[in-house]
Design a protein around this nucleic acid. Structure first.
Length: 934
RNA sequence: GCGGACGUGGUGGAAUCGGUAGACACACAGGACUUAAAAUCCUGAGACCUAACAGUCGUGCGGGUUCAAGUCCCGCCGUCCGCACCA
């Protein structure tokens, strides 16, 4: 077997000459030949071939999964898209990855479920309705039709028979049933809570939709409003959601960590402090705080409560200054920037509290801007020495700082805290009975003591676990979402719509010309009779958060036509999803909500209780990034700057409006319209705002889906960002064309397809045979590990090997050495086609047909690997002198230590380097390395 | 501030266990074919030194463990991401 790249020009010529006389044996729609050009082979016409094979796959329905099948199951799922109207390169990358796995698993004999649907409810449809006077439903379904066609042009192995959109009544009616059952089970409740309210759009905004205190769309100052809303009791599962993260071994560590932080479990105590009767307002006898450091109780020097704490509200009624202070705190907002720059501020209420461990010790109560109302009790005790915030606060207001924990090697007499709090382990000091203890033990002692101590009739303290996770508010004041099936009756309150009256269907004749909720102002829809008493009542006009829709769609896919939310048999068969693939941006919300739904659905009997988690394995792929092109301000056309909302806003150009000249340092961009030089900006995620987008349609139309897919899979590790470049996609195209030519060349030298394996292979045939098996082995492994870029590299390597073998073989056709080569070449060629099949499925079909088959490459079982071929009899190991490589040693794999050492010592470079000296030590690791120490 | 990830040629990146660093690709250079270009094919290449052989250095920086470190340990530096007053 010749090493790669060693075939001389003679071989090339031989291969090309052979090519000229080739006859096409392809039974498939062969690309248009161009006999006039004299080219030996017509170029592979991807767009034309791809449509053909997509039709064949669809007609045969080969990707439609059966719910009854003896083969092992494999559920491959990519996060379903929002139907914005166009797919983008991020989708191409995401779905290409999932498709490789789905097709590979299918070839490995799995019953594969690979469905697709649409996350179809949401605000953009309503905004479109407002702006373009088109109904959200029509807008959405038109977008779905357009995107479906685009996805189909990618040639994905999807089971389209299971497709649905979450805005289909057939889907959301079941979601309403889930709502009712969860309500019944106590997993949904109603309460009043604070929301971000946009007074111009008359709607609630999510936190991420509030930018610098203003609505992202209207620009209006957002108000905090008290609204009665429905909540999922996700906190009921907080502990389990946290615990089970440990079982999700096939999830990225990063995502598990993010979720764990989000859930934010902390172990501490509730502590009740008696208020000094002389200072406390009427009705307030105590102040309850939550703390994780009861051990530092002797270091307490103040208490602080939120401006919204009931005690603060009452105190403010009789204290104008305090009321003003509280108002100011509320205005400051809670955005990240506001919090970071905000000064720590407090207001001494004049109230005092009795220290739980010493009644005579009075502690001042402040209202402070950094205390959150909705965590713990909205009140804290401050121990400045061991909490940085408390220390900053104490220093500002001249409060006492008493260290109560000290690092082991410090002197308690001189140990002081000034500007840096100490949060580490150590020994207790200044703490009476706790002195000398470790903080951990002091915690336990105080917890026991205060749990036994009474204040009034109840214990002073009690151990408590707190979570940062809050219940999930699901009400949205919008039209385009799943209606909440509730009727409000003046007599009976909030009454669930009886299951027999479902679905509650969105009215088609809503109006979108005004801001606010169209359901609210609908003339008839919101009128309904109370299911309990029959009196006239009002229908709930809030709809569900769209995150509800995506929290159980994976379960619905297992039987999308079931007349209950799930068909438990089907769900039991398919779930959990074996591999889920999507963007890291959903690390918390979507994935946490889906995990919650899985538990809630088990509790309401819609899923089997044995199903712990919805997604067995999760993979988060990186983004597709691209250069940006910015027209500098002095070149901006005057019309554009007038229409731009801000004169400072840069004008971005799309890659298709740009012409690039030069390479490397001298690389420059020019606008196609005027020829102006354009600044090449930073590489960023493809986005509409920066206009650095490449349209998948253009790429697929020009190069074909296979090339787009291949490029998205090669080079960059899938979890990292990939940069879209013209050179890159051209390289992928070159490879596709090269493969096509290679198959053409191979046709001339390979055995007929029913040729049995010869009894004995010549050396070079045996070598190729082994290389083919090793390549498939390596590709398999890397696909299973989702390391597509490495799998691609191995395919390149194998292609180089096969290409050389074909050329050499063509050159030596008469040499008896090469007699069994035709069989090995055929095997290798078929293996190569099968290896690319999951990634470039259309090209694989075209090549397969060209080899004389009328079966589908897609239907071929994955090549069976002969384990014996994976190891070589002869291996090359390195020989080092003092740890530096000095020579290579080719030796039998099974050579023992002595043989290896002897062979190594006989090597010329070793003898030369030793120069007659005796080696101090010789390390021999058979099959790995020899290291001679001089 | 807290938590995490990552630093390898001109570039994207390879390198199950500590065992030949730079696979594979892109870009580049030279050559073949061509009237020419495109396409294709061949060859070269981490840096330094050398005519060549040989040699020296080399995985962000500084230490350490080891016969042997991109990989393990300690300390820095840089980049990116997440959370953000969570008591």
């Amino acid at each position: 077997m010749a090493p790669k790249k060693k075939a001389g020009n003679g071989a090339v010529k031989a291969a090309q000459t052979a090519g000229k006389s080739a006859k096409t044996t392809s039974t498939a729609a062969a690309p248009t030949a161009n006999p006039a050009s004299g080219e030996p082979i017509e170029r592979y016409n991807a767009p034309k071939c791809e449509q053909h094979w997509q039709k064949v796959w669809e007609e045969r329905g080969i990707f439609n999964a059966s719910n009854e099948d003896d083969r092992p199951k494999c559920y491959v799922l990519e996060m379903f898209p929002y139907p914005s109207g166009r797919i983008h390169m991020g989708h191409v990358r995401n779905y290409a990855m999932g498709d490789v796995l789905a097709r590979y698993k299918r070839a490995r004999g799995f019953n594969v479920l690979h469905p697709m649907g649409w996350d179809a409810f949401g605000m953009p449809a309503e905004n479109a309705a407002m702006q373009n006077k088109v109904h959200p439903g029509k807008w959405t379904y038109d977008n779905i039709a357009a995107m479906r066609a685009q996805l189909k042009s990618m040639g994905l192995s999807l089971d389209w028979s299971r497709e649905f959109a979450t805005c289909d009544v057939e889907y959301y009616q079941h979601q309403q049933k889930l709502f009712l059952d969860m309500l019944q089970e106590g997993l949904i409740y109603r309460k009043s809570s604070k929301v971000n309210w946009d007074p111009v759009d008359n709607t609630v905004l999510a936190n991420e939709q509030v930018i610098d205190g203003r609505g992202w769309r209207s620009g209006a100052l957002v108000e905090q409003r008290e609204l009665t809303q429905w909540f999922f009791k996700i906190t009921e599962f907080a502990d389990d959601l946290l615990r089970a993260l440990g079982d999700l071994k096939d999830w990225p560590e990063k995502v598990r960590l993010m979720q764990a932080n989000w859930i934010g479990k902390s172990e501490g105590m509730m502590l009740r402090w008696a208020l000094d009767k002389k200072t406390a307002p009427k009705g307030f006898n105590e102040l309850e705080v939550y703390t994780t450091r009861p051990d530092t109780l002797y270091g307490a020097s103040f208490m602080a409560i939120s401006p919204d704490h009931p005690l603060a509200l009452v105190a403010a009624e009789t204290n104008k200054e305090l009321a003003d202070f509280s108002d100011e705190c509320r205005k400051l907002g809670t955005s990240a920037e506001a919090v970071e720059t905000a000064e720590m501020r407090g207001f001494d209420t004049g109230l005092k509290a009795h220290h739980p461990l010493n009644k005579d010790w009075l502690v001042p109560v402040y209202v402070a801007n950094f205390v959150l109302m909705d965590y713990g009790t909205g009140a804290i005790f401050g121990c400045p020495a061991h909490d940085q915030r408390d220390l900053d606060f104490a220093n500002k207001y001249g409060l006492k700082v008493t260290p109560v924990v000290m690092p082991k090697d410090e002197d308690p007499k001189s140990y002081q805290i000034t500007t840096e709090s100490y949060t580490g382990d150590g020994l207790m000091i200044n703490s009476h009975e706790l002195n000398g203890m470790r903080p951990k033990d002091a915690f336990a002692k105080i917890a026991d003591k205060l749990s036994a101590q009474k204040l009034g009739k109840a214990p002073v303290g009690k151990r408590q676990t707190n979570f940062r996770l809050r219940d999930w508010g699901l009400s949205r004041q919008r039209y385009w979402g799943c209606p909440i099936p509730i009727i409000h009756c003046d007599e009976c309150g909030a009454v669930p719509v009886p299951a027999k009256d479902l679905p509650v269907i969105l009215p088609d004749d809503a109006t979108f010309d005004k801001p606010g909720n169209p359901l609210d102002r609908h003339p008839t829809w919101n009128k309904a009779d109370c299911p309990t008493c029959g009196k006239a009542a009002r229908r709930e006009t809030d709809t569900m958060d769209t995150f509800c829709d995506s929290s159980w769609y994976f379960a619905r896919f297992t039987d999308p036509n079931a007349d209950t939310p799930t068909n438990k048999a089907a769900a039991n068969y398919w779930l959990p999803v074996d591999q889920y693939i999507g963007g890291i941006e959903h690390a918390i919300l979507h994935l946490l909500y889906a995990r919650f739904f899985t538990r809630a659905m088990a509790k309401t009997g819609h899923l089997d209780g044995k199903l712990q988690e919805p997604f067995k394995a999760l993979f988060t792929q990186g983004m597709v990034v691209h250069e940006t092109y910015e027209r500098s301000s002095n070149e901006r056309s005057p019309t554009l700057s007038q229409s731009a909302p801000s004169p400072q806003k840069p004008e971005w150009l799309t890659p298709s409006e740009i012409r690039i000249e030069g390479e490397g340092e001298g690389r420059k961009a020019f606008a196609l319209d005027g020829g102006d030089e354009i600044k090449i900006g930073s590489i960023e995620k493809m986005s509409k705002s920066k206009r650095n987008v490449v349209d998948p349609d253009d790429i697929i139309g020009h190069y074909g889906a296979d090339v787009a897919r291949w490029f998205m899979l090669s080079d960059s590790p899938p979890e990292r960002d990939v940069q879209w470049t013209d050179k890159g996609v051209q390289g992928a195209n070159r490879f596709a064309q090269r493969l096509w030519r290679l198959i053409h060349d191979a046709e001339q030298v390979i055995a007929a397809h029913d040729t049995p394996m010869p009894d004995k292979l010549s050396d070079c045939a045996q070598e190729l045979h082994a290389r083919a098996h090793r390549a498939i082995h390596a590709v398999s492994r890397n696909i299973e590990l989702l390391r597509f870029n490495v799998a691609v590299a191995q395919i390149y390597e194998f292609t180089n090997i096969l290409s050389s073998a074909i050329q050499i073989s063509a050159q030596h056709a008469d040499n008896t050495e090469y007699l069994s080569m035709d069989w090995a070449l055929r095997e290798a060629t078929e293996f190569l086609i099968q290896a690319i099949s999951p990634m470039m499925p259309h090209l694989a079909e075209e090549c397969w047909a060209r080899l004389g088959y009328n079966t589908l490459a897609t239907d071929q079982p994955w090549p069976a690997i002969e384990e014996a071929l994976l190891v070589d009899d002869m291996i090359t190991i390195a020989v080092q002198l003092n740890g530096k490589r000095r020579a290579e040693l080719k030796i039998a794999r099974n050579a023992n230590k002595d043989e290896t050492e002897a062979a190594a010592m006989a090597l010329e470079p070793v003898i030369r380097a030793l120069d007659g000296r005796q080696p101090k030590k010789i390390i021999v690791v058979p099959q790995r390395i020899v290291n001679v120490v001089v």
